[in-house]
Design a protein around this nucleic acid. Sequence first.
DNA 1: AACAGTCTCAACCGCCTCGAG
DNA 2: TCTCGAGGCGGTTGAGACTGT
Length: 355
Amino acid sequence: MSRKPCCVGEGLKKGAWTTEEDKKLISYIHEHGEGGWRDIPQKAGLKRCGKSCRLRWTNYLKPDVKRGEFSSEEEQIIIMLHASRGNKWSDIARHLPRRTDNEVKNYWNTHLKKRLIEQGIDPMTHKPLASNSNPTVNTPPENLHSLAAPSSDKQYSRSSSLPSLSRLTNKDGTPVQGGSLSHKKSFKRSSSTSRLLNKVAAKVTSVKEILSASMEGSLSATTLPYASYSDGFSEQIRNGEGSSNAFLTNTLAEFDPFSQSPLYSEHEINATSDLGMDYDFSHFLEKLGRDDHNEENDMNVEYGHDDLLMSDVSHEVSSTSVDDRDNIFENFEGWSNYLLDHADFVYDTESDTLI
DNA sequence: AACAGTCTCAACCGCCTCGAG
DNA sequence: TCTCGAGGCGGTTGAGACTGT
């Protein structure tokens, strides 16, 4: 059985679309609407295949298609979603209002992928490259959100020397812990959506680092990511307050992306059961902190069925027990991914509302 | 000014999914 | 249940723009 190819036909034009062709297509769709792409070329008087018409319309002519530079917020979202979903461009594009999958894909291939490689990160696995050829940059792979360049990236796009690299090193050439200042900057400039995503990703990384350091008894200012933060998080560490599980507990408890995000009203926060959660996020973190402490006495502690992430949504996000620290890490990442997977809203940056 | 190399992104290609009959 | 076709998706290409020498 062989299927007749869609775009095989005599006299069909290929290549760049002319203004005249665009006008014909726009005019036809305005009058008759989208759909029935196979018939559109003939009806609209175009010597194109239907598929070509559909692509031209969806990627370029459609009125609500956003074009132009990607903002740093959009970059961060792309990087984060790519880390959890891979090359699912249409999926990623759904989280970027008015962006097409083709545009996201192109932007990844021409900008973001190169930037990750330059910073010693495998763009496919989002882990450090086997042989890190860039000793001046030692950014943890999880610091995906810190890799987004300023929105003025376009001006560097044709340069092989990425400007972000200079921001990743101190004056003496040593790497800045946890990435670049642009990360901090991005918090200020973020939309609510990306602030939420930033927070999740940042804390995932931070908690990982802290737990690792704590486990090794080596927690210190130098082990902390985001040392350049001024949000009080690393301040406590630098002040010597961060050498115990108490700090971890406090730090974890203070982080609640729901409460910090205007995207969620109070009733929405309380409605986390919609996500299969019996506790809100701060409860989860507090418990995680407690159990991390208790773990010293009971390394085989099992979470009850009413524990966030460990029960109702566990099939989606992670394992059901936390008997080692790797699982703790996975649960944070799992929660982050779960959040993204369920964030089927579209954020309108103009009205600052969910649509 | 001319040329070569590099980069960008619109467009194409081929495979996959899904729904209608 | 099977077949078929429309539409969707991700990978790739190549023309044109840009940059460096």
